[in-house]
Protein backbone atom coordinates (compact mmCIF):
# COMPACT_ATOMS: atom_id res chain seq x y z
CA UNK A 1 0.00 0.00 0.00
CA UNK A 2 1.14 3.50 -0.80
CA UNK A 3 -0.20 6.69 0.71
CA UNK A 4 -1.46 9.18 -1.80
CA UNK A 5 0.72 12.20 -2.23
CA UNK A 6 -1.88 14.65 -0.91
CA UNK A 7 -2.89 12.56 2.12
CA UNK A 8 -6.48 12.67 0.91
CA UNK A 9 -8.78 10.66 3.14
CA UNK A 10 -10.12 7.33 2.00
CA UNK A 11 -13.85 7.80 2.38
CA UNK A 12 -14.54 4.21 1.34
CA UNK A 13 -17.11 3.06 -1.21
CA UNK A 14 -19.21 5.73 -2.82
CA UNK A 15 -21.95 6.08 -5.35
CA UNK A 16 -22.48 8.71 -8.03
CA UNK A 17 -25.45 10.84 -6.97
CA UNK A 18 -28.21 10.78 -9.61
CA UNK A 19 -31.55 12.58 -9.52
CA UNK A 20 -33.61 9.37 -9.74
CA UNK A 21 -32.33 8.48 -6.27
CA UNK A 22 -32.87 11.85 -4.57
CA UNK A 23 -36.08 10.92 -2.80
CA UNK A 24 -34.81 7.52 -1.70
CA UNK A 25 -31.65 8.98 -0.19
CA UNK A 26 -33.44 11.81 1.60
CA UNK A 27 -36.07 9.49 3.01
CA UNK A 28 -33.90 6.48 3.90
CA UNK A 29 -30.44 7.85 4.72
CA UNK A 30 -28.70 4.78 3.27
CA UNK A 31 -25.34 3.96 4.84
CA UNK A 32 -23.24 5.08 1.90
CA UNK A 33 -19.67 6.13 2.65
CA UNK A 34 -19.69 9.12 0.31
CA UNK A 35 -21.23 10.59 -2.83
CA UNK A 36 -19.66 11.96 -5.95
CA UNK A 37 -21.74 14.61 -7.72
CA UNK A 38 -21.55 15.93 -11.25
CA UNK A 39 -20.50 19.52 -10.59
CA UNK A 40 -22.25 21.07 -13.59
CA UNK A 41 -25.66 19.89 -12.40
CA UNK A 42 -25.42 22.11 -9.33
CA UNK A 43 -23.28 25.08 -10.34
CA UNK A 44 -26.05 27.61 -10.89
CA UNK A 45 -29.17 25.80 -9.90
CA UNK A 46 -31.18 27.43 -7.14
CA UNK A 47 -33.99 24.90 -7.38
CA UNK A 48 -34.66 21.49 -6.00
CA UNK A 49 -31.34 19.98 -7.06
CA UNK A 50 -29.48 22.55 -4.99
CA UNK A 51 -31.76 21.89 -2.01
CA UNK A 52 -31.18 18.14 -2.30
CA UNK A 53 -27.44 18.60 -2.61
CA UNK A 54 -27.32 20.74 0.53
CA UNK A 55 -29.31 18.13 2.46
CA UNK A 56 -27.07 15.32 1.27
CA UNK A 57 -23.91 17.33 1.98
CA UNK A 58 -25.10 17.68 5.59
CA UNK A 59 -25.08 13.91 5.96
CA UNK A 60 -22.36 12.54 3.67
CA UNK A 61 -18.90 13.48 2.37
CA UNK A 62 -19.19 14.91 -1.14
CA UNK A 63 -16.62 15.09 -3.92
CA UNK A 64 -17.23 17.22 -7.02
CA UNK A 65 -16.66 15.51 -10.34
CA UNK A 66 -16.82 17.75 -13.41
CA UNK A 67 -17.34 17.15 -17.10
CA UNK A 68 -16.65 20.60 -18.57
CA UNK A 69 -13.25 21.70 -17.30
CA UNK A 70 -11.91 20.83 -20.76
CA UNK A 71 -8.35 20.85 -19.48
CA UNK A 72 -7.09 19.44 -22.78
CA UNK A 73 -8.68 22.11 -24.96
CA UNK A 74 -6.36 24.56 -26.67
CA UNK A 75 -8.68 27.26 -25.34
CA UNK A 76 -7.46 29.04 -22.18
CA UNK A 77 -8.79 28.20 -18.71
CA UNK A 78 -12.37 29.40 -18.26
CA UNK A 79 -12.20 31.33 -14.99
CA UNK A 80 -15.89 32.19 -15.01
CA UNK A 81 -16.60 28.46 -14.84
CA UNK A 82 -13.96 28.02 -12.14
CA UNK A 83 -15.51 30.76 -10.01
CA UNK A 84 -18.78 28.86 -9.94
CA UNK A 85 -16.97 25.60 -9.32
CA UNK A 86 -14.99 27.01 -6.43
CA UNK A 87 -18.11 28.41 -4.78
CA UNK A 88 -19.77 25.01 -5.05
CA UNK A 89 -16.69 23.16 -3.81
CA UNK A 90 -16.59 25.44 -0.76
CA UNK A 91 -20.31 24.98 -0.22
CA UNK A 92 -20.18 21.18 -0.11
CA UNK A 93 -16.63 21.05 1.33
CA UNK A 94 -15.26 18.96 -1.51
CA UNK A 95 -11.69 18.08 -0.45
CA UNK A 96 -10.53 17.97 -4.06
CA UNK A 97 -12.15 18.34 -7.45
CA UNK A 98 -11.96 15.87 -10.26
CA UNK A 99 -12.54 16.08 -13.98
CA UNK A 100 -11.28 14.31 -17.09
CA UNK A 101 -8.07 14.33 -19.08
CA UNK A 102 -9.78 15.32 -22.29
CA UNK A 103 -11.20 18.29 -24.12
CA UNK A 104 -14.88 19.08 -24.62
CA UNK A 105 -14.70 21.85 -27.20
CA UNK A 106 -12.62 24.59 -28.73
CA UNK A 107 -13.31 28.21 -29.75
CA UNK A 108 -15.62 28.42 -26.73
CA UNK A 109 -17.91 25.66 -28.08
CA UNK A 110 -18.85 22.74 -25.91
CA UNK A 111 -19.76 19.49 -27.68
CA UNK A 112 -20.43 17.90 -24.29
CA UNK A 113 -18.30 14.84 -24.84
CA UNK A 114 -15.00 13.66 -23.41
CA UNK A 115 -12.81 13.92 -26.49
CA UNK A 116 -9.37 12.35 -26.89
CA UNK A 117 -6.22 14.45 -26.94
CA UNK A 118 -3.11 13.80 -28.99
CA UNK A 119 -0.40 12.72 -26.55
CA UNK A 120 2.29 15.15 -27.66
CA UNK A 121 4.86 17.36 -25.95
CA UNK A 122 2.83 20.37 -27.02
CA UNK A 123 -0.37 19.01 -25.43
CA UNK A 124 1.52 18.07 -22.28
CA UNK A 125 3.06 21.51 -21.83
CA UNK A 126 -0.28 23.17 -22.44
CA UNK A 127 -2.22 20.96 -20.02
CA UNK A 128 0.44 21.15 -17.30
CA UNK A 129 0.18 24.92 -17.47
CA UNK A 130 -3.61 24.86 -17.32
CA UNK A 131 -3.70 22.31 -14.48
CA UNK A 132 -1.43 24.53 -12.39
CA UNK A 133 -3.69 27.52 -13.01
CA UNK A 134 -6.74 25.51 -12.02
CA UNK A 135 -5.21 24.23 -8.78
CA UNK A 136 -3.93 27.66 -7.83
CA UNK A 137 -7.36 29.17 -8.37
CA UNK A 138 -9.31 26.35 -6.75
CA UNK A 139 -6.98 26.11 -3.72
CA UNK A 140 -7.45 22.36 -3.61
CA UNK A 141 -6.01 19.35 -5.49
CA UNK A 142 -7.12 18.66 -9.04
CA UNK A 143 -7.58 14.99 -9.87
CA UNK A 144 -7.86 13.98 -13.53
CA UNK A 145 -9.55 10.85 -14.81
CA UNK A 146 -8.39 8.74 -17.74
CA UNK A 147 -11.27 8.62 -20.24
CA UNK A 148 -12.61 5.92 -22.53
CA UNK A 149 -11.60 6.79 -26.05
CA UNK A 150 -12.68 5.61 -29.49
CA UNK A 151 -9.93 7.26 -31.55
CA UNK A 152 -6.17 7.75 -31.34
CA UNK A 153 -3.92 10.15 -33.19
CA UNK A 154 -0.88 9.30 -35.27
CA UNK A 155 0.63 12.55 -34.08
CA UNK A 156 0.89 11.20 -30.51
CA UNK A 157 4.48 10.75 -29.46
CA UNK A 158 3.84 8.89 -26.21
CA UNK A 159 1.37 6.42 -24.74
CA UNK A 160 -1.65 7.46 -22.73
CA UNK A 161 -0.11 6.20 -19.47
CA UNK A 162 3.17 7.96 -20.14
CA UNK A 163 1.24 11.15 -20.77
CA UNK A 164 -0.70 10.74 -17.51
CA UNK A 165 2.45 9.96 -15.56
CA UNK A 166 4.32 12.98 -16.89
CA UNK A 167 1.33 15.26 -16.48
CA UNK A 168 0.97 14.32 -12.83
CA UNK A 169 4.68 14.65 -12.20
CA UNK A 170 4.99 18.03 -13.89
CA UNK A 171 1.74 19.62 -12.72
CA UNK A 172 1.32 17.93 -9.33
CA UNK A 173 -2.28 17.01 -10.10
CA UNK A 174 -3.57 13.58 -9.06
CA UNK A 175 -5.15 10.76 -10.99
CA UNK A 176 -8.66 9.37 -10.83
CA UNK A 177 -8.04 5.92 -12.15
CA UNK A 178 -11.12 4.64 -13.95
CA UNK A 179 -10.40 0.96 -14.35
CA UNK A 180 -13.39 0.47 -16.61
CA UNK A 181 -12.07 3.20 -18.90
CA UNK A 182 -8.68 1.49 -18.97
CA UNK A 183 -10.42 -1.72 -19.99
CA UNK A 184 -12.53 0.03 -22.65
CA UNK A 185 -9.60 1.91 -24.17
CA UNK A 186 -7.39 -1.18 -24.03
CA UNK A 187 -10.02 -3.04 -26.03
CA UNK A 188 -10.56 -0.20 -28.49
CA UNK A 189 -6.86 0.47 -29.05
CA UNK A 190 -5.48 -3.00 -28.42
CA UNK A 191 -3.09 -2.28 -25.57
CA UNK A 192 -2.36 -4.11 -22.33
CA UNK A 193 -4.52 -2.68 -19.55
CA UNK A 194 -2.17 -4.04 -16.88
CA UNK A 195 0.74 -2.19 -18.40
CA UNK A 196 -1.25 1.05 -18.11
CA UNK A 197 -1.68 0.43 -14.38
CA UNK A 198 1.93 -0.62 -13.89
CA UNK A 199 3.23 2.59 -15.39
CA UNK A 200 1.34 4.88 -13.07
CA UNK A 201 3.03 5.86 -9.79
CA UNK A 202 0.61 4.50 -7.15
CA UNK A 203 1.14 7.53 -4.92
CA UNK A 204 -0.46 9.72 -7.58
CA UNK A 205 -3.70 7.74 -7.70
CA UNK A 206 -6.29 9.48 -5.54
CA UNK A 207 -9.51 7.72 -6.47
CA UNK A 208 -11.00 4.85 -8.44
CA UNK A 209 -13.99 4.70 -10.72
CA UNK A 210 -15.90 1.58 -11.65
CA UNK A 211 -18.73 1.23 -14.15
CA UNK A 212 -20.41 -1.01 -16.65
CA UNK A 213 -19.97 -0.77 -20.40
CA UNK A 214 -21.41 -2.04 -23.67
CA UNK A 215 -19.37 -4.32 -25.90
CA UNK A 216 -20.41 -3.82 -29.51
CA UNK A 217 -17.99 -6.36 -30.91
CA UNK A 218 -16.05 -3.88 -33.01
CA UNK A 219 -15.49 -1.63 -30.02
CA UNK A 220 -16.64 -1.00 -26.46
CA UNK A 221 -18.74 1.98 -25.45
CA UNK A 222 -18.43 3.47 -21.99
CA UNK A 223 -22.15 3.51 -21.29
CA UNK A 224 -22.32 3.18 -17.47
CA UNK A 225 -25.50 1.19 -17.97
CA UNK A 226 -24.87 -2.11 -16.25
CA UNK A 227 -23.01 -4.09 -13.61
CA UNK A 228 -19.22 -4.07 -13.62
CA UNK A 229 -17.90 -7.05 -15.55
CA UNK A 230 -15.53 -9.56 -13.91
CA UNK A 231 -12.54 -8.53 -15.98
CA UNK A 232 -12.90 -4.95 -14.76
CA UNK A 233 -13.17 -6.15 -11.15
CA UNK A 234 -9.95 -8.05 -11.70
CA UNK A 235 -8.31 -4.90 -12.97
CA UNK A 236 -9.57 -3.02 -9.91
CA UNK A 237 -8.11 -5.72 -7.67
CA UNK A 238 -4.81 -5.49 -9.50
CA UNK A 239 -4.67 -1.70 -9.31
CA UNK A 240 -5.90 -1.52 -5.73
CA UNK A 241 -3.23 -3.86 -4.48
CA UNK A 242 -0.62 -1.43 -5.72
CA UNK A 243 -2.18 1.64 -4.12
CA UNK A 244 -4.15 0.53 -1.09
CA UNK A 245 -6.83 2.74 0.45
CA UNK A 246 -8.35 5.09 -2.05
CA UNK A 247 -11.85 6.41 -2.53
CA UNK A 248 -13.72 4.01 -4.77
CA UNK A 249 -16.83 5.02 -6.64
CA UNK A 250 -19.39 3.28 -8.80
CA UNK A 251 -20.99 5.20 -11.68
CA UNK A 252 -24.33 4.17 -13.15
CA UNK A 253 -25.85 6.64 -15.63
CA UNK A 254 -28.19 4.78 -17.92
CA UNK A 255 -30.95 2.27 -17.20
CA UNK A 256 -30.36 3.19 -13.58
CA UNK A 257 -31.78 0.58 -11.19
CA UNK A 258 -33.04 1.02 -7.63
CA UNK A 259 -30.57 2.67 -5.29
CA UNK A 260 -29.90 -0.55 -3.37
CA UNK A 261 -28.77 -2.31 -6.54
CA UNK A 262 -26.29 0.47 -7.33
CA UNK A 263 -25.05 0.58 -3.75
CA UNK A 264 -24.61 -3.20 -3.58
CA UNK A 265 -22.58 -3.06 -6.77
CA UNK A 266 -20.32 -0.42 -5.23
CA UNK A 267 -19.89 -2.53 -2.10
CA UNK A 268 -18.60 -5.47 -4.15
CA UNK A 269 -15.35 -3.50 -4.25
CA UNK A 270 -14.93 -4.31 -0.54
CA UNK A 271 -14.36 -7.94 -1.42
CA UNK A 272 -11.46 -6.98 -3.63
CA UNK A 273 -9.94 -4.80 -0.95
CA UNK A 274 -10.05 -7.51 1.63
CA UNK A 275 -9.11 -10.54 -0.42
CA UNK A 276 -5.54 -11.72 -0.85
CA UNK A 277 -4.02 -11.27 -4.30
CA UNK A 278 -5.08 -13.81 -6.84
CA UNK A 279 -1.91 -15.10 -8.55
CA UNK A 280 -3.79 -15.62 -11.79
CA UNK A 281 -4.43 -11.93 -12.02
CA UNK A 282 -0.82 -11.47 -12.96
CA UNK A 283 -1.74 -13.06 -16.25
CA UNK A 284 -4.77 -10.93 -16.79
CA UNK A 285 -6.10 -11.74 -20.24
CA UNK A 286 -6.09 -8.91 -22.71
CA UNK A 287 -9.41 -8.18 -24.31
CA UNK A 288 -9.86 -10.02 -27.53
CA UNK A 289 -10.72 -8.14 -30.67
CA UNK A 290 -13.73 -9.35 -32.57
CA UNK A 291 -13.42 -9.77 -36.32
CA UNK A 292 -14.55 -6.76 -38.29
CA UNK A 293 -18.25 -6.84 -38.77
CA UNK A 294 -20.82 -4.72 -40.48
CA UNK A 295 -23.63 -3.39 -38.35
CA UNK A 296 -27.21 -3.62 -39.50
CA UNK A 297 -29.25 -0.40 -39.36
CA UNK A 298 -31.02 -1.70 -36.25
CA UNK A 299 -27.70 -2.50 -34.58
CA UNK A 300 -26.40 0.90 -35.53
CA UNK A 301 -29.43 2.50 -33.99
CA UNK A 302 -29.00 0.44 -30.86
CA UNK A 303 -25.36 1.43 -30.73
CA UNK A 304 -26.27 5.08 -30.90
CA UNK A 305 -28.91 4.70 -28.22
CA UNK A 306 -26.47 3.04 -25.90
CA UNK A 307 -24.21 6.06 -26.10
CA UNK A 308 -26.83 8.51 -25.11
CA UNK A 309 -26.20 9.14 -21.44
CA UNK A 310 -26.33 12.86 -20.91
CA UNK A 311 -23.28 14.53 -19.49
Amino acid sequence: MTANKWNLSDFGFGVGLRSVHYNYILENNPSVDWFEVISETYLESGGRVRYVLDKIAERYPIVLHGVSLSIGSSDPVNFEYLKLLKALADRVKSPYISDHLCWTGVNAHNVHDLLPIPYTEESLKHIVNKAKQVMEFMERPLVLENVSTYAQFASSSMSEWEFHARLMEESQCGMLMDVNNIYVSAYNHDFDSKEFIDRIDPSLVCQYHLAGHTNKGTHILDTHNDHVIDAVWELYRYAYQRTGGRNTLLEWDEDIPEFDVVHEEALKAKKYRNEKPDPTMMNLPRPTIAPKMRLTPVEKNELVNSMSHKL
Binding site: D113, Y150, A151, F153, D190
Partner: peptide, 24 residues
Amino acid sequence: NVLPSKTLTPVERIGIYRKMFFLR
Protein backbone atom coordinates in the same frame (compact mmCIF):
# COMPACT_ATOMS: atom_id res chain seq x y z
CA ASN B 1 -3.65 11.44 -38.34
CA VAL B 2 -6.51 9.32 -36.97
CA LEU B 3 -5.33 5.77 -36.45
CA PRO B 4 -7.59 2.92 -37.52
CA SER B 5 -8.31 0.13 -35.05
CA LYS B 6 -8.33 -3.54 -35.95
CA THR B 7 -12.04 -3.21 -36.62
CA LEU B 8 -12.83 0.41 -37.46
CA THR B 9 -11.55 2.91 -40.00
CA PRO B 10 -10.57 6.45 -38.97
CA VAL B 11 -13.87 7.71 -40.38
CA GLU B 12 -15.87 5.16 -38.40
CA ARG B 13 -13.98 5.96 -35.19
CA ILE B 14 -14.65 9.69 -35.40
CA GLY B 15 -18.18 8.73 -36.46
CA ILE B 16 -18.78 7.33 -32.96
CA TYR B 17 -18.24 10.81 -31.53
CA ARG B 18 -20.44 12.36 -34.22
CA LYS B 19 -23.37 10.08 -33.43
CA MET B 20 -23.02 10.69 -29.71
CA PHE B 21 -22.92 14.43 -30.30
CA PHE B 22 -26.18 14.60 -32.24
CA LEU B 23 -27.89 12.22 -29.83
CA ARG B 24 -26.92 14.36 -26.89
